[in-house]
């Protein structure tokens, strides 16, 4: 039979899944699979650096427990990394929102009236088969929804665009 060290070296060449599976092969396999030889190799090469940068100190007594700790997300570098990512994400969101607003303004310029008048009508025509509840609900809910949309358009237009366009929207 192979020595425990040899079994550990073999298991270190497999994957974490295989190492965990071999825990239930036999008691000698269990101690071989729990050894630091195996998990040292399965951990990322800079795991010591990661552990030392963690905000909350990790509790572990073996390399295997470090692996388990690192399976969950941890905050590193005093949490600054996450803050920076949050700022990046917020910036991206703002850019996306302003692009959507530009797009809405463009649509409002060209054929806002046509779209607003036709949309609820189309919706009702499409859905008679799907039952009474939806066809009754849609006329009541859609004009309301569109009202909000029109008001939002007007406000943004009135603050930024000239009076002529503003009146045009209101008259429609």
């Amino acid at each position: 039979m192979l020595l425990e060290d040899c079994v550990s070296t073999i298991l270190s060449n497999t994957s974490p899944l295989d190492a965990c599976r071999s825990l239930s092969v036999s008691s000698s396999f269990r101690s071989a699979a729990n050894s630091d030889i195996v998990w040292e190799r399965l951990l990322p090469f800079d795991y010591e650096d990661i552990v030392s940068r963690s905000v909350t100190p990790l509790k572990f007594s073996s390399k295997k427990e470090i692996f388990v700790c690192l399976c969950d997300p941890i905050l590193t570098d005093g949490g600054n990394k996450l803050e920076k990512e949050t700022i990046d994400l917020t910036l991206q969101r703002d850019v996306a929102q302003s692009q959507v607003q530009d797009l809405l303004r463009l649509v409002g310029d060209e054929d806002s009236m046509v779209g607003l008048n036709n949309y609820p009508h189309l919706r009702v025509q499409k859905s008679p088969d799907s039952g009474n509840a939806t066809s009754k609900a849609s006329p009541s809910s859609y004009p309301h929804f569109l009202d909000v949309g029109v008001r939002a358009f007007d406000r943004s237009l009135s603050s930024r665009q000239n009076g002529a366009l503003h009146h045009n929207c209101f008259d429609g």
Partner: peptide
């Protein structure tokens, strides 16, 4: 050798 044996047990059942 260990690499070879490891390939034999990768993904195998208990």
């Amino acid at each position: 050798l260990c690499q070879n044996v490891a390939e034999m047990i990768k993904g195998k059942s208990v």
